[in-house]
Amino acid sequence: MAIITTHISDYIFPSIIRGAESYLSQQGYQVSLFSTNNNHENERKFLEKILTQHFDGGVIIEPTKSAVTNPNINYYLNLERQNIPYLMINAFYDELEPFHIVMDDEKGGFLQTEHLIELGHENIIGFFKNDDTQGTKRMKGYLKAHRKYNIEILPNNIVTYSTEEKSTKPMEVLKKLLEEKDEKRPTAIVCYNDELAIKLLDVIRESELQVPEDISLIGFDDSFMAEVTEVKLTTIAHPQSEMGELAAKVILDMVKQSKGDKEAIDNRK
């Protein structure tokens, strides 16, 4: 059995992987882990390896840059040709219409923004990663919350960034925005995830502002990071370990179904 994820050792990914790997090990499967670092070339290499080494137990995959056109679609079609079941988690490539287990990211983005609106905020900046569908869907929820509560959407309050920009652009943009005069400065921040929220907290501290007295922010994923700073983050829950375990159960069902279909074909020959 193979698990391909965008990252292995940081953020929420260890919990997701642990949930899947623990269940698969209990069922007698050996698990190989691969990390693409959200890079299509790495994804291609791992898919080639899986296709040539015949992983008959199936593949659990977190897609790489799921919001952009994927150059590796033919490799997934080859998985299907070789009757290797695969399941996508956290996001999926829409053109393939694969089995998938995902969060309702649009609703999560809506709830993030609605919470801040209910606290009285109207000048809310949103930071969204735009090469993964989680980010685009969370941004859609942000927009829907503004429209539901008839709050003007300020175009400059939507900040998008790519995987390659995640360690620089959001912090640079926020630093400039916090230098604005009080009436123009945003009073609240919707963060793509907790990892980003922690980085933005550092910028807020450097600007000598306080959370939540001067500015509020909300994260996403309910990661361990939400508890490690002096400011305890409000965040949207993510069933990390449970998602991994559910993915493991579903892929095993798919494997059993696949083997049953193959045996039926062989018996008809």
Results as ranks from 00 to 15, higher is better:
L47F: 01
G57L: 03
K45D: 01
S22W: 02
G58Y: 07
N39L: 03
I50A: 07
E62L: 10
S22C: 05
E21V: 15
Y29W: 12
Q27C: 14
N37Y: 13
N37I: 03
I50S: 03
R18I: 10
K49P: 00
H54W: 00
L24T: 06
N39W: 02
L47T: 00
Q26M: 14
G28Y: 14
S32M: 10
N38H: 07
T52W: 00
H40Y: 11
Q53I: 00
Q26R: 15
V31G: 04
G19Q: 10
K45I: 04
R44I: 06
E43N: 03
K49H: 12
R18P: 00
Q30G: 12
V59H: 06
D56R: 10
H40N: 12
T36E: 02
N39E: 09
F34V: 02
I50Y: 05
H54S: 12
G57R: 02
L24P: 02
H40T: 01
K45W: 00
G58M: 08
L24V: 08
P63G: 11
R44A: 14
Y29H: 15
F55K: 04
G28W: 14
L47N: 01
G28N: 13
E43G: 03
I60V: 14
N38C: 05
G28K: 13
R44G: 05
P63W: 09
Q30D: 14
H40G: 01
P63N: 11
L51C: 07
I60R: 05
F34N: 01
I61N: 08
F55R: 04
H54Y: 09
V59N: 03
I50F: 05
L51E: 03
H54P: 00
L51I: 09
S22I: 01
H40C: 03
Y29V: 01
I50K: 02
E48C: 03
P63L: 10
L33N: 06
A20M: 11
V31K: 07
R44D: 05
F55I: 12
E48A: 00
L51T: 02
E62R: 08
S35V: 01
I50T: 09
Q53Y: 05
Q30A: 13
V59D: 04
G28F: 13
N38M: 08
K49A: 00
H54K: 14
H54Q: 13
I60D: 07
Y23T: 05
L33T: 09
P63Y: 11
S35Q: 10
I50E: 04
E41N: 08
I60M: 11
L51M: 04
L51A: 06
D56C: 00
Y29F: 15
E62F: 05
E43Q: 13
Q26Y: 08
